[in-house]
Simulated scan of single mutants.
Amino acid sequence: MKRILLFLGTNIAVLVVLSVVLNVIMAATGIHGIQTQSGAINFQGLLLLAAVFGFGGAFISLLMSKWMAKMSMGVQVIDQPRSQSEVWLMETVQRLSREASLPMPEVGIFDSPQMNAFATGATKKSSLVAVSTGLLHGMGKDEVEAVLAHEISHVANGDMVTLTLIQGVINTFVIFIARVVGHIVDRAVFKSERDYGPGYFITVIVTEIFLAILASMIVMWFSRQREFRADAGSAKLVGRGKMIAALRRLQAEYEPEDMPGQLAAFGINGGKGSGLRKLFMSHPPLEERIAALEAMR
């Protein structure tokens, strides 16, 4: 329930902010709406709307990602280590960050019996690396070190920003094309002349759903490639054997719990899948990741 309320609240807030921004930009540029006075498409206005909501939504989500992670996953940031385990965790992240030429990220722990971890944050200087209690208790130190190196590699590779840019481009494309299709259907099929009728809005919704499904496949493909890179980065930081051992340990785990939004793309364990479901997975299957590491030179 907490995650649902956070999701609804933040999305409503984002829509309000982006609506205000769009109106300000339109007033400043003299662009008025997505239709001309004759009822034709105002491509400048439509592109502006699509870009503001497409990129704006993606970047606001990125800026809020660390706060959302702490709230939705219940991450407890370690300010002062209270146990030997937390001391080791902080020292390991500090060492790996130094080796990856990164500023020290915030380090946190979230309560979950599942073995998982994630990295998030808008920039390399404001990142967060968090691990589950299940991972700390279920893995050996070498394996946990490999997982931490994997998450540090995500930060070093700039994966959060890269996927945000990809998501922004795709969001813009979906919003723009859906409204062009809606306009054509409304004029050609429903014979509207000026104001859009119900046919336009129904067509836009159906088209957006269809395009969003296709778009998610593209985003998830990029996410899976980034996962291979993060595995390779971990292998370079701590050794291929440790990363392979960590992945093999994950193979024995149950299906991991879902993590909200962008966090799923940067978790260590993306679950199991095959066939059509594989196209929508943020992570490659563990056996493919292990095979890629074994093939590394």
Rank of each mutant, 00 (worst) to 15 (best):
F280I: 01
P284A: 11
V107L: 02
S274V: 04
I290K: 07
S192F: 14
N23L: 15
A50I: 03
A265F: 00
I244G: 01
L136I: 06
A100H: 06
L8P: 06
L263K: 01
V144Y: 08
L102I: 04
L96R: 01
G56Y: 07
S83G: 07
D79V: 09
V20Y: 15
M1F: 14
Q44R: 09
F59G: 00
I218E: 06
S127P: 02
K272L: 00
A117D: 04
A27Q: 14
S282W: 02
K278R: 13
F176A: 13
F210E: 10
G261T: 01
L102A: 04
K125P: 06
A246Y: 03
N171V: 08
S61W: 00
G199L: 14
N269Q: 03
I202R: 12
A156C: 07
E294S: 11
G57P: 11
G273H: 08
G197R: 13
Q94P: 00
V204Y: 10
V93T: 05
A212E: 11
L128K: 06
R277F: 04
E193A: 13
G261I: 00
L46M: 10
F190L: 11
L214T: 08
H137M: 13
T203F: 10
R297C: 00
A265I: 00
V77Q: 07
F110T: 00
F118P: 00
A122Q: 12
P103M: 03
E294G: 04
G271M: 03
G121M: 02
M281S: 03
G9L: 15
G140L: 01
R277Y: 06
V147H: 08
R240E: 13
K278Q: 12
F53W: 12
L89F: 03
D142M: 02
R226M: 00
R187F: 09
R98D: 08
A146I: 03
V181P: 11
E145R: 15
F266L: 05
L47W: 09
R226K: 12
L163P: 08
E227K: 06
